[in-house]
């Protein structure tokens, strides 16, 4: 076979391969986008049409008015706006709290030697193992002892205690060259200055990636908010939307669907906006 033949055959394979690849990837894309799209279309129809099972593939444009209506704090209606705000505040507090707490503890473990250092490290390691779901009942009992049931702190604090972020930071800190620390010490920087002037600026990308992961983690919590907050005013959007589809008598399906869309929007936007950092941070944090 001549070189030209070979090249032609390779190109032929490549084109055929590309068609298959496009087909598979388009199907995958549809698998994820189509369900969301159908729900979005449903949200713009009126309840009667939905109840008859009359759902097409195109949204009813005037039906879009449901979104501003749901988002305006109207008395009597479902407090979607408040649930969104609470979810946002909770996700933000969890992400910021975890980053702050882990940054400090990782700094202590990586840049100091002190008695009990390995003990602390292993303690953190064990924390990593048990997701909040597994220890939900005992955690509730303890939080109840602290009188934090039905409080924002009770919602956030137990989700802030985890070691994933600490380990990620520690890993990043280990890679900081010794000479850089030495240069800073020769320049007269103490531990706090080094943290503020060198380490935090150097950890910006890690923090951004971690923020996305933790924001999504916080926003998507369901079981803990369900258990710890019995007061409907402390319903997060995730708890609220599941509650909305609960009773079968409910007929305002378009509202339910619109709320479902709204519940997914913020974390999705955060992920898409910081896609590259997030993917890098995620795959590296598990290493």
């Amino acid at each position: 076979m001549t070189g030209a033949d070979l090249r032609a055959r390779l190109r032929g394979n490549l084109v055929a391969g590309n068609l298959v690849a496009h087909a598979v990837l388009l199907m995958g894309t549809a698998l994820f986008l189509l369900p969301i799209w159908l729900v979005f279309v449903g949200s713009t129809l009126d309840s009667g049409a939905i109840n008859r099972g009359d759902i097409g593939l195109l949204p009813r444009l005037e039906g879009l008015a449901i979104y501003p209506r749901l988002l305006s704090p109207a008395p009597g209606g479902v407090p979607v706006w408040r649930m969104l705000a609470l979810s946002f505040a909770m996700a933000l507090a969890i992400a910021a709290g975890k980053i702050a707490v882990s940054l400090l503890s990782a700094y202590a473990v990586a840049f100091f030697r002190f008695p009990g250092r390995m003990l602390c490290f292993w303690l953190l390691f064990i924390t990593l193992m048990l997701p909040v779901e597994v220890r939900i009942i005992p955690t509730f009992a303890v939080v109840a002892d602290f009188g934090m049931v039905n409080t924002f702190a009770g919602l956030v604090l137990p989700l802030t205690a985890s070691a994933t972020a600490t380990l990620l930071f520690r890993q990043a800190f280990v890679l900081v060259p010794d000479e850089l620390v030495e240069a800073a010490r020769m320049d007269g920087a103490g531990p706090w200055r080094f943290l503020r002037d060198v380490l935090i600026p150097l950890s910006r990308t890690n923090m951004a990636a971690l923020f996305v992961i933790l924001f999504v983690y916080g926003w998507n919590q369901y079981l803990w908010p369900l258990v710890v907050a019995t007061d409907p005013r402390l319903d997060t959007i995730t708890v609220g939307i599941v509650r909305m589809i609960g009773p079968e008598s409910r007929t305002a399906w378009n509202e339910v669907m619109a709320t479902a869309i709204l519940a997914m929007l913020p974390p999705t936007l955060v992920v898409l906006a910081m896609l590259r950092w997030f993917v890098k941070g995620l795959t590296e944090s598990e290493r």
Partner: peptide, 19 residues
């Protein structure tokens, strides 16, 4: 402490603050 010695040092791998 190194900071109180009034000594400056040039490092093998430069040790410049990258940011």
């Amino acid at each position: 402490d190194p900071a109180a010695r009034d000594i400056a040092m040039v490092f093998q791998h430069y040790a410049l603050y990258p940011h």
